[in-house]
Each structure stands twice: as C-alpha cells, then as structure tokens.
Write a protein that binds this DNA or RNA. Structure first.
Length: 310
DNA sequence: CATTTCACCTGGTGGC
DNA sequence: TGCCACCAGGTGAAAT
C-alpha cells in the first residue's frame, strides 16, 4: 500500500525518467470513478504537453505539465517558443528526457495528479511491453516509451488541473518531513481521538498510512490507543522525530513492498525488512520478546508491543 | 461540528 | 482438488 515513502520513490523514479519528455497520446480505460473531476476524464487535456517535473504532495503524485501545442520535434540546443507569456515557469526542451531545463514564459501549464489508492502502480515501460491486466491509463511519450497506470483494486484516482483556470494542487494536512515542532504539537494537541487515528487522518498530516503509523508509534514507545490530548508535548516531539527517521529511512530503502508495491521501474522496496510491528502480530517483539499484539483501531489492523509501548 | 462507521474494489488466503 | 467466504486498507460519504 503506497504511503509517503512509496509515493516519494515512485515520483522520483518517474521524474528521473520522464522529465523533459512529452505526452503524444493519452488512452484511458472505461472506469468512470477513476476520474475525480470531469476535466480529468479528457485525454486531450494531456496530449501535446511536456512533462516539466514530477513530485509528491502527501500521497499524491503531481506531474507538472507545460502548455500544449508546443513544437513537437526539437533537437539539442534549439529553443522553443511559447505563444502566451504571462507567468514564469520552468520549461523543458521537450523530446529529450533528462535535458537541462530552461526558463520559459508559460500561462497555460497544467497538473496531472495521481493517487495510487491501495494497489495503484505508475510504470514507465517500452511502448511494446505487454499490457498488464487492470491497466487504466497509457500515455504514449515522445521518447517512444509509455507511462502506465495499473490498479487492480481500483481505489486509485486521477485528477487534472488547468492552472490558468484553477489553483495548484495542495495537500490538506502538513507534510511529516517538513512540519515544525510547533506546528506538529498544534495539530495534535487537545484532540479527542486516538493518536493512531490522528496519524492516519490526511487532513491533519499528509502521507502517513497504516504501516508507518504503527512503525513510528513502536519506535517512540507510544500505544496506538492513547488519546492525542493525553500526550505530553515531549511525547509529541519524540513522535515527530520518530516519524521523520522512519519515513526518511524508508525512502532510502525504496519503500515497503508488502503486497505488490513496485516503483516506476518495477523494482521492489526493502523497508519491509525493517518492520518491527507491522503484520507481526503474535511474533516476539524484536526488543523485548513479548508477543506483538494485533487489534483493530480506526477500522485498521493495528500492531504494537504491549510492553515497549505505553 | 467533530468524530466514527461503512462502502467501494479484487487478489490472495485459509477452511472445509 | 476445488470452491467460497472473508480480509486487506485509503478515502470520502453517510451516520451518529
């Protein structure tokens, strides 16, 4: 299940491969709920646009796209012109993946926003690669490759924003990697819900899911059932730091491949080998040998050590 | 209004 | 061996 480290890994992988490439043709499957808004349903909205950058916001992958209708063919060193200069944006030399970006004037850029849900994958493949079952989107690229969205369980969602019509996408909650100690304390202080439920709430903190909630609570020694309002300021700060360490370590290891998660190149992550409690119910705690307990909290399987976590 | 519960999905698992 | 009920969980709508 893609959480912050998995989404970050995929976004980086897609950016590395596709920055400077161009979408020539977009083909969507026929599952209406895949699209969050009517504009996301329009394949034409993506066609002709250059991929300027790809990044993560919360659990969302945001592809920054240039204006459509740019010169389709270019060669190294040639500069491309934009017809409508009003705001400044970075623009790629299209058709040359990895090319240095230059400053361009652009008022009609857009964002393609991908949420992977439970089982979604974004894959960069050769155009001739076999099409996996449950492939809902195929973007043909100027480089001859394809960006594919595959999602068996269909919890993933796609959105599209024309930045000349609407504001850029932003996460509802704070990012765990950049939130300050004061902000973090402010978010959780005086809330009457369990810390586990709060960590999973994307409107409070964006990016933490079931795995990293359980793992960070174990590392900081706090029981998932504790109420936010009962946590001391010191405990909250320790939790913020534990989250930071766990998430950054997981990013370094390419995320957790617990079900079928792979990155944009099809590679598995390795952080599942570092899991202390997640899906280890009944097995001995790695620190004290007490059997790890599994309960259901906030409707989710929740794992903790009854001795190490208070 | 804040918080909790539930439906949406399908592949994998375990029981008989 | 085969079949089927059941579970996983991110999100948002519905319920409390």
């Amino acid at each position: 299940m893609p959480e912050l480290p998995e989404v970050e890994t995929i976004a980086r992988g897609v950016e590395l491969r596709l920055r400077g490439d161009r979408i020539l043709e977009a083909r969507f499957g026929s599952y209406p709920k895949l699209f969050k808004t009517p504009s996301a349903r329009q394949a034409k909205g993506l066609e002709g646009r250059a991929i300027l950058a790809v990044h993560r916001t919360g659990k969302h992958i945001v592809c920054e796209l240039g204006a459509a209708g740019w010169i389709l063919q270019s060669h190294p060193g040639r500069k491309l012109r934009n017809a409508d200069p009003s705001t400044t944006l970075r623009m790629a030399r299209v058709g040359h993946p990895g090319a240095d970006l230059e400053e361009w004037e652009d008022s009609s850029s857009a964002q393609w926003i991908v949420h992977l849900g439970m089982t979604g994958r974004l894959l960069v493949t050769p155009a001739e690669a076999p099409v996996a079952p449950h492939t809902h989107v195929r973007l043909s690229l100027a480089s001859g490759r394809e960006l594919r969205f595959v999602d068996p369980r269909r919890f993933g969602r796609l959105d599209f924003r024309d930045l000349s019509l609407s504001a850029a996408f932003s996460a509802a909650g704070a990012d765990p990697l950049t939130v300050t100690a004061d902000e973090f304390a402010q978010i959780f202080r005086s809330r009457r819900l369990t810390i586990k439920a709060a960590l999973l709430n994307q409107k409070l903190l964006s990016g933490v899911g079931n795995i990293y909630a359980d793992e960070s609570l174990f590392r900081v020694g706090i029981r998932p059932r504790r109420l936010c309002a009962r946590l001391t300021r010191a405990e909250l700060e320790s939790l913020r730091l534990a989250l930071l360490v766990v998430l950054e370590h997981a990013i370094q290891l390419g995320g957790s491949s617990v079900s079928d998660y792979v990155d944009a190149g099809g590679e598995r992550g390795f952080f599942q080998l570092e899991h202390c409690v997640y899906q280890r119910g009944g097995q001995p705690c790695l620190r004290c040998q007490t059997p790890i307990r599994r309960i259901v909290l906030a409707g989710r399987g929740t794992h903790y050590c009854p001795k190490c976590q208070r």
